[in-house]
């Protein structure tokens, strides 16, 4: 099995007056075609890990491999070009540009990558997500759940190998959250993509194949075939420890 993403001894220190160590030596491998949830108390370094693994930020030390190639060995521009070929992103606050229509938001990564902004492909993805009729509207006209589905469509449009999601259901009601999670699940099962998702919700984590736990910037356990109850129990232990 090849690893879609691998991180080796990641350290990240934020230097804002007093230095904060967000990652304190994290090594992990994410197999291609799997769905992994990353959990941990607030401030444990989950978002930092995701951003470093995805090439959105640079670790202070350590190496990141995306699809077998080392991301951390390149400069900023090369790193951006590399990740936009292979990674898609979904964030809690949707990250849509208010001035662009739904369809324009969806094809944005393709346009930035100067790949042919294939309208057919955008329509196809939007159709799959039940948003075909909203293609020409501005994001402000959509509900939170719909906006997040647009964000998922944007993450999927370039057929990336890996999809990184940071609390994708954090701002959604229960029904919209389940829809988004089911979508992520489907992309793994039916299209062989790899999904790495940060969440604090045990119910969301139960959609994953594996759960990684973080505490104080270090790995603190792992669960396979998780249930919401098992995840919640492990979390409670972490917080109590």
């Amino acid at each position: 099995m090849t690893d879609a993403v691998r991180v080796e001894s990641l350290y990240k220190t934020y230097d804002t007056g007093t230095p904060v160590t967000a990652l304190d030596g994290v090594s992990a491998a994410f197999e291609a075609g799997t769905f992994t949830a990353v959990m941990g108390p607030s401030g444990s370094g989950k978002s930092t890990l995701l951003q470093c693994a995805a090439g959105l930020d640079r670790p202070s030390a350590g190496r990141v491999f995306l699809g077998g190639a080392e991301l951390t060995a390149t400069g900023d521009t090369a790193m951006t070009k590399f990740r936009r070929e292979r990674a898609g992103f979904v964030f809690q606050d949707y990250n849509l540009l208010p001035a662009l229509t739904v369809e324009q938001n969806v094809v944005l990564p393709l346009r930035l990558a100067r790949r042919r902004a294939d309208r057919g492909r955008a329509r196809e993805v939007l159709g799959t997500l039940g948003l075909a009729e909203r293609a020409g509207e501005l994001p402000e006209r959509l509900s939170g759940g719909q906006r997040q589905r647009v964000a998922v469509a944007r993450a999927l449009v370039g057929r990336p190998a890996v999809i990184f999601a940071d609390e994708p259901t954090g701002a959604l009601d229960l029904r919209s959250a389940r829809e988004v999670l089911a979508l992520l699940r489907t992309t793994v099962r039916d299209f062989g993509r790899t999904v790495i998702m940060v969440t604090h919700d045990p119910m969301a984590a139960a959609y994953a194949d594996t759960v990684l736990f973080l505490a104080d910037g270090r790995l603190a356990g792992q669960l396979s075939a998780p249930t919401a109850e098992a995840v919640a129990a492990h979390l409670t232990e972490l917080v109590a420890a």
């Binding site: 900023d76 521009t77 951006t80 936009r84 944005l108 930035l112």
Partner: peptide
């Protein structure tokens, strides 16, 4: 925040 969105969507520094 808008530029952060663009950067996350794959915009390079020169872009």
């Amino acid at each position: 925040d808008q530029f952060a969105v663009l950067r996350r969507a794959g915009a390079t520094g020169p872009q």
